[in-house]
Design a protein around this nucleic acid. Structure first.
Lengths: 192, 192
DNA sequence: CCTACCGATCGGTAGG
DNA sequence: CCTACCGATCGGTAGG
């Protein structure tokens, strides 16, 4: 998936548009207007509207995969591994807020490559679940429902940008606060 | 907002449809087909497609408000109040999964009553924030960012149905697991 | 509840 | 990159 310069520009503008109006609420005419061209001219650069959604969903999915491989191949104690995964995942999410939002909420409008996407995401969740299980096992923690816990972690991280207002500090302060909430919840800090 | 029997039926079928295809991805013809009538016949019961979305968004918003008032007017210790709020809110969410999903993700497609909805939700969040602040203060807990914490709680509760598979047990086991995660996070149980 | 129909807009193609 | 245009579908109305 190598994008040419113009395609990247289209992608960037589309991300903004899809975030604001949703994929189904955005027309190719809306997109073209934002790019100061006519709708028909878009088709010199894209096969279809859906292709842009594919760029978004599969692109960020790849980033999540790469980041996971890095974490898995690092040789550190299990508990630090959980921290590293959260930090790295959060970093990708916070650098790609709008893309992550579309990945999370608009994937169902993929058609041609929908089965492929669902399979990809299933594999990713399984790999994260393996990592989590491994960590819990090494730490001798009880893991009631690995799948449940995995979904909780991923969903919480993927939607963390939601808790901020418009003007967001991208600093590590934010990451710390989120990691704290995920790991220790509301009362964890106070040791109940 | 008193709905007639037929309107309730339309609402129920629309909730299913909007959940599956999204509001913008659902046509009034899709909806009519599911109801075994013609699209034009719908308009004997509804003013517009948007009105159905209004029923969904404002209806569940009202339930959230009612539940919050109940919690506020109950005379119990602060910590139990937090628990009660989580339980009650979760109970409304789990009884109205699809409606909550639409409320959370499709509200932006309201047009006529969009400003009213945004205002309503802002007020609700403020009231929850007041409750949280009061509880933290009474318990002498540190509350770094009340708004942040409030959004974390609401978002986590509103999306809790996400962590389950298709076949969901509606028992209190689920509620317990979620409250545990929200209050204590991943590691809270282990007291780190 | 239906048939018949409206103007507007949709994603996309042809041809330059 | 444009103009010109396509068939399909959109939300909705008229009139019964």
């Amino acid at each position: 998936m190598e994008l040419k310069e113009k395609q990247r520009k289209i992608l960037d503008v589309a991300v903004e548009l899809f975030k604001e109006k949703g994929y189904m609420g955005s027309s190719v005419r809306d997109l073209a207007t934002k790019l100061n061209i006519k709708a028909a001219s878009l088709y010199a650069h894209i096969r279809s509207k859906e292709e842009i959604l594919e760029w978004i969903c599969f692109g960020i999915a790849q980033e999540f995969f790469d980041e996971l491989q890095e974490v898995k191949s690092t040789n550190i104690p299990p508990k630090e591994k959980l921290n590293l995964f959260i930090d790295k995942h959060l970093s990708v999410v916070l650098k790609n807020r709008d893309v992550t939002h579309i990945y999370s909420n608009e994937w169902k409008h993929l058609e041609e490559r929908l089965p492929e996407f669902v399979e990809l995401r299933k594999n990713y969740q399984q790999e994260v679940e393996d990592l989590i299980s491994e960590i819990y096992k090494a730490e001798n923690w009880e893991l009631k429902s690995p799948a449940f816990t995995t979904r909780f972690i991923l969903h919480t991280l993927n939607n963390s940008y939601f808790w901020f207002k418009r003007n967001i500090e991208s600093g590590s302060e934010v990451t710390d606060e989120i990691r704290d909430k995920v790991l220790f919840g509301l009362l964890g800090n106070h040791k109940q």
